[in-house]
Design a protein around this nucleic acid. Structure first.
Length: 804
DNA sequence: AGCACGCCGACT
DNA sequence: GTCGGCGTGCTC
């Protein structure tokens, strides 16, 4: 007898363990760990993951697995173990860990159906009766529209109705019907004579098979080619001459797209030195972490491509992570161009179904390389030869919901399991990674030169306070104006970055200082030109733009801050002849809009590309010779100890967009704090100094990489409750952490209220604290009941990326 | 998380 | 006396 340990799809602390089930006789040979199954769980049915098969169990009254969902495991043994590791590292539920590894399409959906099992339809109340006229099963949702649950319940108790719990899949494999000939062509010819002469279409179909020497053909194609109808085909199938089969097909997001084949480029001296140790590690199957620190344009990608080539030639597989790849279609081109059909692409721009199909290609070992965003790190490869994380410093590698994992940590874990190298690449590495490379934990590979030997574009810092004193009240400094006009005349292109994060346009009364805030969140509402609305970015609350101040009824109510829309308006005024493309959430939320806009810009159908963060990454257009940063310092004022680091990274990256090819580039950075070191140092491309300066600060303030951080956030509609719970947590932590661990708080979160819930937090700074995970878990367990019954929420983020 | 069970108040 | 509220505890 075989028993299966199953992790059920119920996200709760009490169910966060394996439950044992009997494996029915007929599936004993089929089952294996990593498969999804449907199991009875209490009165209902749920999906679950088999994590173990065993011949023994402690539990006596076992139920049986009711269904198999997979015929091949969707989780490899390695991934099952990785799930265990993830739950420990991020304090999440086991199911959540497994679900994070799989495409969303594979998450189960649950529905309840009511079936009539009585004798007389008349026995049902008249409200319910009509539903069952002509059918036995009805969706509970439909009946609930007219009847109360209690009414239905009564019928269940007296045996007229029953509830059936159904588990459904979100998306399924897309299939086409394929028609095959059952026998050889000579046998087909013989069949011809047996077919009645008046069945002309049947003859046509058989002839079609014979003359075209067809083994199989999609049904649709066969019908259109022979002008036959499907009944004719059915007749032949029932005669056994033809066979029908459902064949899985892939929704290919890159269908109909040609990718120009590219060949390896010769590597320069630096690149060769960088690739050497990587190739060595691949060859010798060594787990090593490399930090490839290479300035923008130094040819990191070519090093990736050639290392991958080596991995694939050895018959192994590779994962390449890129930050939100839809932002860099150019990147997809480079990988598809070099490795063609060996590549699967996974990113947020794909539909659920497309993502599922790409994942299936990996599972079925039809590809050897996956290029994708964060979650692609879980690609179910079994012979990994290398993992690459490009733009290692990008914050999108950290998932901001449970499980709060960092792709870099997962990559290193998997690298160890597979004995393969992990390559982290960046022009502006995180302090954490660079510090590790200094300590020799990671091996540092440096690329100092740009491949085309071009210098980095020269950077001019403009003091906007000075501009204001000189009477320039616009958002463009005189210098930036000059240069934009100049580019326009020379038919060169400009990229304008509006660094908006943490600083959106809000409405303020000039007389009394009143700011329109969200009634549910402690945050000011954001002004949206479209529809003249004020919107809350946290809960979605909307209200119309007021004409007068709600507080003092003054008419001097204005919006402050600058949105891309407003910049665009002003640009149109001062440079009427310029063609502008604006890229922000509003213009890119449609699928493919992003790529379209970029293509348009690339084809020089516009002179200026104006956008937020999203334009800072990976764009490479030869005619861009000017980059303007409208307000460099907005990010600096955020309550985030990484603010300076992030500002430096952003400025360096966006500067790298200029002058990548023949034409030299220039950068203008506008700021109100020109003296700030991260602005100064980014203008000199001086990462080393930034590293030293910032490390000093992190040391004095006990921040990463000197200390690890854990952030506990408590929220509840009642502020008193929040404060007291956070206080309790802090006290408990103080009593149970290591000596050199520091506890800060309780304090109100930077956004003290979201969706009518008050938020408090406490920060744990620790160096080595082996029991901290256990202590934190105990806290969660202690409040578990209140978290389910009372509206309490406690979230723990280990190594948070943001303090918000 | 869901769902059943079980124990109390307010109604036919 | 029952209906219907919510606290409690279990799910292989």
């Amino acid at each position: 007898m075989k028993y299966a340990s199953v992790i059920v799809d119920v996200q709760a602390m009490q169910t966060d363990r394996a439950f044992d089930y009997k494996v029915p006789e007929e599936w004993q040979q089929l089952v294996s760990p990593g498969m999804r199954v449907i199991v009875p769980f209490g009165p209902r049915k749920v999906q679950g993951f088999i994590v173990e098969l065993k011949n023994q169990t402690d539990y006596e009254k076992l139920k049986s697995i009711s269904d198999l969902v997979d015929l091949t495991p969707c989780l490899t043994t390695e991934l099952i173990e990785l799930g265990q590791w993830l739950t420990e590292k991020t304090l999440c539920f086991k199911v959540s860990a497994f679900q994070a590894m799989l495409p969303a399409a594979m998450k189960a959906k649950y529905e309840k159906v009511i079936r009539f099992i009585g004798d007389e339809l008349e026995a049902l109340p008249f409200t319910i009766r009509p539903f069952f006229e002509g059918k036995i099963e009805v969706d509970l949702k439909d009946i609930e529209q007219v009847a109360s649950f209690r009414e239905i319940h009564k019928e269940i108790e007296c045996g007229n109705l029953e509830v059936i719990y159904k588990v459904k899949q979100k998306t399924n494999k897309k299939t086409v019907k394929v028609i095959k000939a059952s026998e050889t062509f000579s046998a087909l010819s013989e069949h011809l004579s047996a077919i009645p002469a008046n069945a002309k279409k049947q003859h046509d179909i058989i002839h079609y098979f014979i003359t075209n020497r067809l083994n199989e053909i999609p049904l649709q194609l066969l019908l259109s080619e022979t002008k036959a109808s499907d009944t004719t085909v059915k007749a032949l199938i029932s005669k056994g001459i033809l066979q029908e089969e459902n064949r899985e097909i892939y929704r290919d997001p890159y269908e109909n797209r040609e990718f120009e084949k590219t060949n390896p480029l010769p590597l320069n001296e630096e690149q060769q030195q960088a690739i050497g140790p990587i190739i060595h590690a691949i060859d010798k199957k060594l787990h090593e972490v490399f930090l490839m620190y290479g300035v923008t344009g130094s040819g990191k990608t070519e090093v990736y491509l050639q290392s991958i080539d080596k991995v694939l030639k050895e018959g192994r597989e590779a994962i390449v992570l890129v930050p939100e790849i839809s932002l860099t279609p150019q990147m997809v081109h480079r990988f598809k161009g070099r490795f063609g059909s060996k590549v699967a692409v996974l990113h947020s721009g794909l539909s659920t179904g497309e993502k599922y199909d790409e994942w299936r290609k990996i599972q079925r070992k039809e590809v050897q390389l996956v290029v994708g965003a964060r979650s692609a790190i879980f690609a179910p490869f079994e012979k990994l030869g290398m993992i690459i994380i490009d733009e290692e410093h990008e914050s999108s590698y950290k998932q901001e919901e449970n499980p709060r994992y960092h792709a870099r940590d997962v990559a290193i874990y998997r690298g160890k399991q597979h004995n393969c190298p992990v390559v982290l690449g960046s022009a502006t590495p995180t302090l954490e990674s660079f510090a590790r490379s200094q300590k020799g934990v990671y091996k540092l590979l440096t690329l100092k030169e740009r491949v085309n030997k071009r210098n980095m574009p020269s950077v001019e810092i403009v003091d906007m306070r000075e501009e204001l004193r000189n009477g320039n009240r616009s958002m463009f400094s005189a210098s930036l104006m000059d240069k934009m006009t100049d580019r326009l005349n020379k038919h060169e292109q400009t990229v304008l970055l509006l660094n908006k994060r943490g600083y959106s346009s809000f409405v303020m009364c000039r007389d009394c200082g009143y700011v329109n805030g969200c009634p549910h969140c402690d945050i000011s509402l954001t002004y949206h030109l479209r529809g003249q609305q004020l919107k809350c970015h946290y809960c979605g609350y909307e209200e119309p733009l007021p004409n007068t101040c709600p507080e003092c009824e003054s008419e001097h109510i204005r919006y402050f801050g600058t949105g891309t829309q407003k910049v665009e308006e002003e640009l149109v005024k001062i440079l009427p002849e310029a063609r502008i493309i604006r890229m922000d959430v509003d213009t890119t939320n449609r699928k493919g809009a992003h790529e379209k806009l970029l293509t348009k810009f690339g084809q020089k159908q516009a002179d200026i590309l104006l956008g937020t963060q999203m334009i800072a990454k990976g764009l490479d257009f030869p005619d861009v010779t000017l980059v303007g940063v409208l307000t460099a310092d907005t990010m600096l004022n955020l309550p985030d100890f990484r603010a300076s680091e992030k500002t430096f990274q952003l400025l360096t990256q966006v500067s790298g967009r200029a002058g990548r090819h023949e034409l030299p580039g220039e950068v203008v950075i506008q700021t109100y704090t020109p003296e700030h070191y991260s602005i100064q140092l980014s203008s000199q491309y001086d990462y080393d100094s930034l590293f030293r300066h910032e490390m000093q600060l992190r040391k004095t303030h006990a921040y990463p990489p000197y200390y690890f951080i854990a952030l506990v956030t408590v929220s509840h509609p009642d502020i008193m409750k929040v404060v007291s719970v956070t206080e309790t947590i802090v006290q408990y932590l103080r009593r149970n952490v290591a000596n050199d661990t520091r506890i800060l708080g309780p304090v109100a979160s930077p956004i003290p209220r979201i969706k009518d819930r008050y938020r408090y937090q406490c920060m744990v700074k620790y160096k080595r604290d082996n029991d901290l995970h256990i202590t934190l878990r105990k806290i969660l367990e202690h409040f578990q009941q209140e978290m389910t019954t009372n509206q309490l929420m406690i979230s723990v983020d280990l190594n948070p990326n943001t303090m918000m």
